[in-house]
Nucleic acid binder design. Structure first.
Length: 871
RNA sequence: GGGCGCUUAGCUCAGUUGGUUCAGAGCACUUGGUUUACACCCAAGGGGUCGGGGGUUCGAAUCCCUCAGCGCCCACCA
């Protein structure tokens, strides 16, 4: 025997990775087969693999391998995302360590650094995906900043602009003072924090009276341009036409009346800073108020902040509170819980800021995208996310698509003068120059310059299912015609708006066709205490280390043992142990097969014929269930069915029956059949555990056949239900007998005779029974004369020929069984004598109850009879 | 403030339209077992008033109401 006792995944995995790579095994080209397409959610180009990726990509691999076995032309497109804000932040940090300030070098110098960084750290994650067994078409690997994908983004922008859907506007936007860029609403997260509400004293002009104004942000008083009060607030009616003096600043501002102010909040008086709050901005517009910006880009106060000029906003708050207090202008301070808006990427507190940005009009685009999901043309798994999606689509706001960054797709807009009043949209600078010349032939072309902003990263990601097939630039090319719409997208619910919703929008807009059929939402991977895995907590294992320790197949199924769609997954390393044990089980099943000595002169044994007949039906039954699971994207459940099929049905029952006793031989025919079932099992396992399944398949068949090329996923086959029932009943008797032996302290090897009158058990099944229990099942016309131990299974009793006196124990057991069955009988009789039940219940239910009653009456009779004999 | 979802065995979760013994699975646990594929194993076994209360029904884990706890998403109360 060459094969070791325990499965050693490392060598096997290296071998298969090399093979797959060598012949580009998983590459796909359009063909006459039906396509099954998945595009990967592109991870950040400089990211490294974490458990979330591991889960997500394992699921994709399972789906794509299953589809391949199903006979589809399966294509899984891999790639990475430039992740503009995250990557730029990393590059800025790296430069800072080298004492280089982003703003002191030119744009192109920065971009050079960024590419250098990307080339150095990029793509690692693609290699890690290979390690976990992902069967992507690596020849199609894409990056969102590749030339073709970049051009696609620019073309999309131009098309949307021409359709009047992109516009430039001055608005209050979310400003990230750390990254110094705007953010879309989706990139802002809200966190509840304990903060304080300060009550400030605003003196009324030409009066000794004052009003109290509540604010959480006293440092913004420099930007105040009015105090607003609800017109229905009786307390302040008399103040109409009055003006108040801002504390410390000593500037005079008007009191305005606006329904937007809540009477019941604070004192009912709202300080209005139009430059630093969306609501204040709209009040400002309505009442024609001055707009005073008091912050620099890094959220320090600017010269409008007077003596706080240059100070950070939070430091300024502390100091100004102290100053107000000192000057008796602070009336009160109260504890207050409010929600802080934070940048999703940099975690710093977002500052509402007035600026000119580019926006995409969403209302018209969103309508068909909503319908497609509501009509079930795109299916969500689990379905509950349809609600979330619907809510977002119905309340959609315009998308701020410009970012004040360098790393990304630069907006294809060109200006001809410093104040940016005139611009054209063009693919290139040359094209822009031509456009400007059409307007003004004397234009000074040196004045023409491109917009500095780049586009939001998601403005390229939302094209991903189209752009990876170059379908934006060439809408009718072979690839896009063949692979689009894609089949399934697998992602986390956290990017349902960022990505899923927008892909649906762009797909319908560009191609009038949905981007995918199914959306499978995975949950979040948490630790065994339910905490979200994160670098800070240090509770996130490195998937690659786990693979080193347990093997890729084991980690894959370990993760999947409990990962229903959309539910969070509580991960514990013990799951990998379970996975490893399973690979080992398979490995040893193979080792057992290897030990079989085959003789061509033997006939098949009776028990083997029965076992094969049973396993055939059992396998087909389970395959039906597994196929059903796949249809509904119940991947974990499918895995569990396979796990039990292999461990319980195949190993514990089937192999135990068919394996020859020590030294004996197996018939040629049996050997071939057993091998064929082993192969059938390897096919089922393959999507989940690609390495060990390929390895065992090759070893088992000693040919160069490879699962994904030569085997196909089973369709449903024939099931002999009545035989299955008889056989499963037999297994029940086996269990009872084993239990009996244990209770009576009889060795499992001891042979006993068991007499019965169950006509469903023929000679052949008795031979199976002998294999599993080492006991004989003997049909006997005359059970009454045998005053021995009795086991009752179903409607039959089984008398064990066991000479030790077990009468007392038996009677106790039998009495228990009698009590239970009498109770059960009462319940059924009560039900059947209830006239309402008879009138209302459907016939099949009533008949079912009658059958139950018959069975239980027979059983009671047998038990009573046995007890009376014992006495 | 609005919306969605969850609560079933020690843990993680299944449980289709209410109806065959429907109260399940895996893990964990208990007990017994090992020269003859696997102790990363085999065999047997014990665990739950289906979050609480009320209702509808012949019949409820499943439908309705209500209370409690937990989670998520959305929203411009400063």
């Amino acid at each position: 025997m060459i094969t070791g006792k325990a499965y050693k995944p490392k060598d096997v995995e290296e071998k298969w990775l090399a093979k797959w790579k060598k012949n580009n095994r998983y590459s796909s080209q359009p063909s006459n087969k039906s396509p099954y397409t998945i595009v990967i959610p592109p991870p950040n180009v400089t990211g490294i693999l974490h458990m979330g990726h591991m889960l997500n990509n394992t699921i994709q691999d399972i789906l794509i391998r299953k589809a391949r076995l199903d006979g589809f032309n399966a294509c899984w497109v891999p790639g990475t995302d430039h992740a503009s804000i995250a990557t730029e932040a990393k590059v800025v940090k790296m430069l800072k360590e080298k004492n280089i300030n982003k703003h002191e070098i030119s744009r192109s110098e920065f971009i050079d650094h960024a590419w250098e960084w990307t080339n150095k750290h990029g793509g690692i994650i693609m290699d890690q995906l290979k390690r976990i067994g992902c069967s992507c078409d690596w020849t199609r690997t894409k990056f969102t900043l590749d030339d073709d994908l970049s051009e696609s983004v620019i073309e999309m922008f131009i098309k949307l602009f021409k359709d009047g859907l992109i516009y430039r506007d001055k608005r209050i936007v979310n400003w990230d003072p750390e990254a110094k860029t705007t953010l879309s609403n989706e990139e802002v997260i809200y966190v509840e924090k304990d903060s304080k509400l300060f009550f400030l004293k605003y003196k009324i002009q030409d009066s000794d009276e004052y009003i109290s104004v509540a604010t959480t942000r006293p440092e913004t008083i420099f930007g105040d341009s009015a105090i607003a009060i609800n017109p229905n607030d009786k307390r302040y009616k008399k103040l109409k036409g009055s003006k108040v003096i801002i504390p410390i600043v000593n500037r005079l501002i008007p009191i305005v009346f606006d329904e937007m102010v809540e009477k019941d909040f604070g004192t009912g008086c709202l300080k209005v800073t139009p430059a630093h709050s969306e609501k204040d901005f709209s009040i400002g517009i309505k009442h024609k108020l001055e707009c005073i910006d008091i912050f620099n880009d890094d959220a320090t106060l600017n010269k409008n902040g007077q003596h706080y000029n240059g100070l950070d906003r939070f430091l300024a708050r502390k100091k100004i509170v102290a100053e107000l207090d000192e000057k008796k202008l602070l009336l009160d301070t109260k504890k207050y819980k409010n929600k802080l808006s934070m940048s999703e990427r940099t975690s710093c507190i977002v500052e509402p800021k007035l600026s000119i940005q580019w926006f995409l009009k969403m209302d018209l685009l969103s309508k068909p995208a909503l319908d497609t999901v509501i009509n079930d043309e795109i299916k969500f798994y689990p379905k509950k996310y349809v609600n979330t999606y619907k809510h977002w689509m119905e309340n959609i706001r315009d998308w701020n698509i410009s970012r004040q960054l360098y790393w990304g797709h630069r907006i294809p807009v060109y200006y001809c003068n410093k104040n940016k009043s005139k611009f054209v949209v063009a693919k290139s600078r040359n094209e822009a120059v031509e456009e400007f010349k059409k307007i003004d032939s004397n234009i000074d072309t040196r004045e023409i310059f491109q917009e500095n902003d780049v586009l939001d990263t998601w403005f390229s990601s939302w094209l991903w299912p189209i752009s990876v097939f170059d379908g934006v630039r060439k809408p009718k090319n072979n690839d896009i015609n063949y692979y689009y719409p894609t089949s399934t997208i697998v992602t986390g619910p956290d990017i349902i708006f960022f990505w899923i919703a927008r892909m649906v929008i762009s797909g319908l807009y560009l191609r009038d066709e949905k981007p995918f059929e199914n959306v499978y939402f995975t949950g979040i991977v948490r630790d065994n205490k339910g905490k979200k895995m994160s670098k800070q907590l240090g509770n996130s294992p490195d998937p690659i280390e786990l693979i080193e320790k347990y093997g890729a197949d084991s980690v894959r199924i370990g993760l999947l043992f409990s990962a229903p769609a959309g539910n969070d997954l509580l991960f514990d390393e013990s799951l990998c142990v379970q996975g490893r044990n399973f690979t080992n089980k398979l490995w040893n099943a193979f080792r057992l097969f290897e030990t079989f000595k085959v003789s061509s002169e033997l006939d098949q044994k009776d028990s083997t014929i029965q076992a094969i007949k049973w396993f055939e039906s059992k396998y087909n039954l389970k395959v039906n269930k597994i196929n059903q699971c796949f249809k509904n994207f119940k991947i974990s459940e499918a895995l569990m069915i396979i796990y039990k099929l292999v461990w319980d049905d195949f190993c514990s029952i089937f192999l135990e029956i068919v394996k020859p006793k020590f030294g004996n031989e197996l018939s040629q025919e049996s050997s071939l059949l057993i091998k064929s079932y082993f192969n059938k099992i390897l096919v089922l396992i393959h999507p989940f555990m690609p390495f060990i399944s390929e390895e065992l398949f090759v070893k088992l068949n000693t040919k160069k056949e490879i699962i994904s090329e030569n085997l196909i996923w089973p369709k449903s086959g024939s099931i002999d239900n009545s035989f299955l029932r008889d056989f499963d009943d037999l297994i029940l008797i086996v269990t009872k007998v084993r239990n009996f032996k244990k209770q009576k302290n009889i060795s499992f090897k001891d042979e006993l005779s068991i007499f019965h009158q169950n006509k469903n058990i023929n000679e052949s099944l008795s031979s199976v029974f002998k294999k599993l229990t080492n006991c004989k099942l003997i049909f006997s016309e005359d059970l009454d004369s045998k005053d021995l131990s009795t086991i009752v299974v179903g409607k039959y009793k089984y008398i064990v020929d066991f000479n030790q006196d077990t009468k007392e124990d038996d009677i106790i057991e039998l009495r228990k069984a009698l009590d239970y069955n009498l109770g059960f009988k009462d319940i059924i009789e009560k039900k059947l004598s209830n006239s309402k039940f008879i009138e209302n219940a459907p016939n099949n239910v009533i008949q079912g109850e009658r059958n139950k009653l018959d069975d239980v009456l027979k059983k009671i009779e047998i038990i009573k009879e046995t007890i009376s004999k014992k006495n």
